[in-house]
């Protein structure tokens, strides 16, 4: 027996798969957004509204706005007991596929790549991966996404950054959802923003209500510019 020194992270093979997927998606011009959150954070409502707005049919004047303005979107739903109605997503003009995690608590790059291949993402601008509802494991495994986004809802509390630091450190943007519920909860927005910024100074924070539409524009603008950046970065 010989000793082979490795000094390699346990997730090194996943990291390599993730880099391969990212390169392939960049070649095809599709930006994959990895959405991470607790169960019940309002991902579905946020995603439905976002897709509707980005597709260019937001105000019910279907056909009035040029189709070229809209972005083509797709959704990979990684939670087995999905609360995203695939037909609803389909109606909104987005492709959707259910991905099985084989009982695991997170998506890894291999599973993400198979899901995307099965669905096909030719011509898709933005693909959203709805990761498993969990604030711990998904942060540790690179899915191959171009951007990582975390959703924290007002009812969950402003202390989450203290409990799950890695999730906040590995996200490019944080959506604080359900801000229409702020009057009913002791959620200190300033304290939350301060805690998040202490963990990750460069993170972008978007307080939104998918129900009333408040704050949605800034979040959607960020998505559009992330897509532009993605296509011009090399």
């Amino acid at each position: 027996m010989k000793i082979i020194e490795l000094h390699e992270s346990v997730t090194a093979s996943n990291d390599r798969d993730a880099d391969t997927l990212r390169e392939e998606m960049r070649r095809k011009g599709t930006l994959l957004i990895n959405l991470m959150s607790s169960p019940g954070s309002g991902k579905t409502t946020l995603l439905s509204r976002t897709i509707r707005d980005l597709s260019g049919n937001a105000r019910g004047f279907a056909g009035n706005r040029a189709a070229e303005d809209g972005l083509k979107t797709a959704v990979l739903e990684a939670d087995i007991d999905s609360d995203v109605d695939a037909r609803q997503i389909d109606r909104l003009g987005a492709k959707a596929i259910q991905v099985h995690t084989d009982g695991m608590c997170h998506m890894d790059a291999g599973m993400t790549a198979s899901g995307l291949d099965e669905m096909g993402y030719e011509g898709i601008d933005l693909a959203f991966l709805e990761n498993v509802g969990n604030l711990i494991c998904p942060a540790e495994f690179d899915t191959g996404a171009g951007r990582n986004v975390m959703i924290l809802s007002v009812p969950e509390g402003d202390d989450k950054p203290l409990k799950y630091p890695l999730m906040f450190q590995s996200s490019d943007a944080l959506v604080i959802s359900k801000i229409d519920a702020l009057p009913y909860f002791d959620f200190d927005m300033d304290a939350c923003v301060r805690r998040v910024k202490a963990l990750h100074p460069a993170i972008r924070i978007f307080p939104v209500s998918a129900k009333t539409g408040e704050g949605m524009e800034a979040w959607e603008e960020w998505l559009r510019s992330a897509l532009c950046d993605w296509r011009s970065e090399s």
Binding site: K2, E5, L6, E8, S9, L166
Partner: peptide
């Protein structure tokens, strides 16, 4: 917070 494979014995 790391998890690293330091070394293996192999043949």
């Amino acid at each position: 917070n790391e998890c690293v494979i330091k070394e293996i014995e192999a043949e």
